[in-house]
Structures are given as structure tokens and as C-alpha cells.
């Protein structure tokens, strides 16, 4: 695991609350296949407090972490990092 990934896994999770569900991440995402596979859905689940459901979301298997969503987000939500963190949570269990 690289140092940034380790920091992402053990550090505080990237916040999702600033999201206004504008959908730019989904529009720019090359792997988005709505309705099931969409980064916006994953962020929404986190916002609703359904973290477990988010960590089991099938989009986590699609994402290639290209980071386009992260660049396009007007509200500063680090979507790709959030997804990656959820992947860690799914496969490595909760940190610590």
C-alpha cells in the first residue's frame, strides 16, 4: 500500500456533506452506468448515513480512480478518494 493510500485508509474519511447532488461527477465519470453504477449514488448513501450500504455498493468495483469527478466537483467533494476509502473499508475492514 502506498503512503497516500495508507493515509487515506487510516486518516479521517473524506467528507461528503458538502455535496449538493449536482451530478457533475456522474456526468464526467467514464464508468458511470446509472441507475445502479454512479458515483453520485455512493456519495448520497454516505450523506444519508448509510455507510455500510455505501461500502457494499457495486460502483466500488467499477471505479478506476481516474479522479475526473474529484476535479469537476464544484463543492470540493473528493469523490474518487471517498470511493477508494470505501473500497478499503470493504476489503480491509474498518481502520484500526
Amino acid at each position: 500500500m502506498s503512503a497516500p493510500d495508507r493515509a487515506l485508509h487510516f486518516g479521517p474519511p473524506p467528507p461528503a456533506q458538502a455535496c449538493r447532488q449536482c451530478g457533475r461527477c456522474a456526468s464526467v465519470c467514464p464508468r458511470s452506468r446509472p441507475p445502479e453504477l454512479s458515483p453520485r449514488r455512493v456519495v448520497r448513501l454516505v450523506q444519508l448515513g448509510l455507510r455500510d450500504e455505501a461500502a457494499r455498493h457495486p460502483f466500488l468495483h467499477s471505479c478506476r480512480f481516474c479522479g475526473k469527478c474529484l476535479v469537476k466537483c464544484p463543492h470540493g467533494v473528493e469523490v474518487a478518494r471517498l470511493v477508494k476509502r470505501l473500497v478499503f473499508e470493504q476489503f480491509l475492514g474498518p481502520p484500526g
Binding site: 447532488q21 451530478g23 456522474a26 456526468s27 458511470s32 452506468r33 446509472p34 441507475p35 454512479s38 453520485r40 449514488r41
Partner: peptide, 11 residues
Amino acid sequence: LRCEDAYAGRE
């Protein structure tokens, strides 16, 4: 142009 509608969950 490509866009996702939140309500329909459709692209």
C-alpha cells in the same frame, strides 16, 4: 452532451 438525472437515476 451527457448528463445524469438524479431523480430518474438515468443517464
